Computed example of a mutant assay.
Amino acid sequence: MATQADPKAEAPPKSSERLAVFLLVVVMAPVMSVAIVGGWGFVVWMLQLIYGPPGAH
């Protein structure tokens, strides 16, 4: 039979939660935004190399 642990005993401290939110908001969100926009720009560039610029056909 499994015993149920006290949820308060396993909660991370507030400082680690703030650090995690800081890293997600200040670091990861801008990095992911740049990666997504840059990746899409690369895809469009490669497609234009293969198929030509818009309106070329």
Score class of each variant (00 low, 15 high):
residue 28 M to F: 15
residue 51 Y to M: 07
residue 17 E to F: 09
residue 3 T to H: 14
residue 45 W to Q: 07
residue 12 P to I: 04
residue 54 P to A: 11
residue 29 A to W: 13
residue 13 P to H: 00
residue 32 M to P: 01
residue 25 V to C: 08
residue 21 V to C: 03
residue 52 G to I: 07
residue 56 A to T: 12
residue 51 Y to H: 09
residue 1 M to I: 11
residue 13 P to E: 03
residue 41 G to P: 03
residue 19 L to T: 06
residue 37 V to K: 06
residue 22 F to S: 10
residue 3 T to A: 14
residue 52 G to H: 02
residue 33 S to V: 13
residue 5 A to M: 07
residue 22 F to R: 02
residue 45 W to V: 02
residue 18 R to M: 15
residue 27 V to N: 09
residue 14 K to H: 04
residue 47 L to N: 04
residue 17 E to Q: 12
residue 53 P to I: 10
residue 40 W to M: 13
residue 2 A to D: 15
residue 19 L to S: 10
residue 39 G to Q: 00
residue 8 K to C: 04
residue 3 T to L: 15
residue 10 E to N: 08
residue 30 P to C: 00
residue 6 D to L: 03
residue 50 I to T: 02
residue 5 A to Q: 07
residue 17 E to V: 10
residue 50 I to F: 03
residue 44 V to F: 07
residue 42 F to T: 03
residue 47 L to K: 04
residue 42 F to Q: 11
residue 14 K to Y: 09
residue 1 M to A: 13
residue 18 R to Y: 15
residue 53 P to H: 12
residue 40 W to S: 08
residue 4 Q to F: 13
residue 49 L to F: 08
residue 45 W to I: 03
residue 1 M to K: 13
residue 30 P to S: 05
residue 27 V to S: 02
residue 15 S to E: 15
residue 18 R to Q: 15
residue 47 L to I: 06
residue 17 E to D: 11
residue 17 E to H: 07
residue 11 A to I: 04
residue 50 I to A: 04
residue 29 A to G: 09
residue 4 Q to E: 14
residue 51 Y to P: 00
residue 25 V to W: 08
residue 20 A to P: 02
residue 15 S to G: 10
residue 48 Q to H: 08
residue 11 A to C: 04
residue 28 M to N: 11
residue 32 M to E: 12
residue 3 T to E: 14
